[in-house]
Amino acid sequence: MEDTALQAAEQLLGGLPPSPAVWCSGLRKRYGRRTAVDGVSFTVGRGEVVGLLGPNGAGKTSVIKMLLGLVRPDAGEVLLLGRPGRDPASRERVGYLPELFRYQPWLSAAEVLAVHVRLARASVPAEEQRQALALVGLADRAGDRVNGFSKGMQQRLGLAVALVARPELVVLDEPTSALDPLGRADVRDLVLSLKARGVAVLLNSHLIGEVERVCDRVVILDKGRVAASGSLAELLGQRELRLRLGAVNAAAEARLAATGSLHRSGDEFTVVLPAEDDGSTVPGLITDLVGLGVQVHAVEPGRISLEERLLGILRHEEEQR
Rank of each mutant, 00 (worst) to 15 (best):
M153Y: 14
D173F: 02
R166H: 11
L159W: 06
R197V: 06
L192N: 00
R188Y: 01
D173G: 11
L190M: 04
T176C: 02
L135A: 10
H206V: 07
E174N: 04
A165K: 11
H206P: 05
R145A: 12
L192Y: 00
V199E: 13
D186N: 06
R197C: 11
V171D: 13
Q155W: 03
L135Q: 07
A196E: 15
R188N: 05
L182C: 01
R141S: 11
P175F: 15
L190C: 01
L135H: 02
A134C: 03
Q155T: 05
L157M: 09
K195P: 06
G183A: 04
P167T: 08
L182F: 04
L169Y: 06
V164F: 08
G198Q: 08
L179A: 11
D173E: 10
K195Y: 06
E168I: 08
R166A: 10
N204H: 09
V164A: 09
L159N: 06
L157E: 07
L194Y: 02
D180R: 00
G143L: 13
P175T: 04
L202H: 13
A185H: 14
D186R: 07
L203C: 12
R166V: 03
R145F: 00
P167C: 14
V170P: 12
L182W: 04
V201H: 12
Q155D: 05
L157S: 08
F149S: 11
D180P: 02
M153H: 09
V161Q: 15
K195H: 14
D173A: 03
D189G: 07
D144L: 11
P175S: 08
V164D: 13
R166I: 01
G137Q: 07
D173P: 06
V136Q: 10
V136N: 08
L179E: 09
G152C: 08
G137N: 09
E168L: 04
A139N: 08
E174P: 00
G158F: 14
V201N: 14
L159V: 06
D140H: 10
E174Q: 10
L172N: 14
H206C: 09
L169F: 13
A165M: 02
D173K: 06
V164R: 05
V191W: 03
D180V: 00
R197Q: 10
G148T: 14
G137L: 03
S150N: 04
G198V: 09
N147G: 01
N147E: 10
N147Q: 05
V161P: 08
L207I: 13
R141P: 00
D173N: 06
V201L: 09
A196G: 09
S205L: 02
G143V: 01
F149D: 08
G183L: 02
L194I: 14
T176N: 08
K195R: 15
P181A: 02
V191F: 00
A134E: 12
A134F: 07
Q154W: 00
Q154F: 02
Q155H: 03
L179Q: 05
T176P: 00
A200C: 12
V199C: 14
N147F: 06
L194K: 14
D144E: 15
L192F: 03
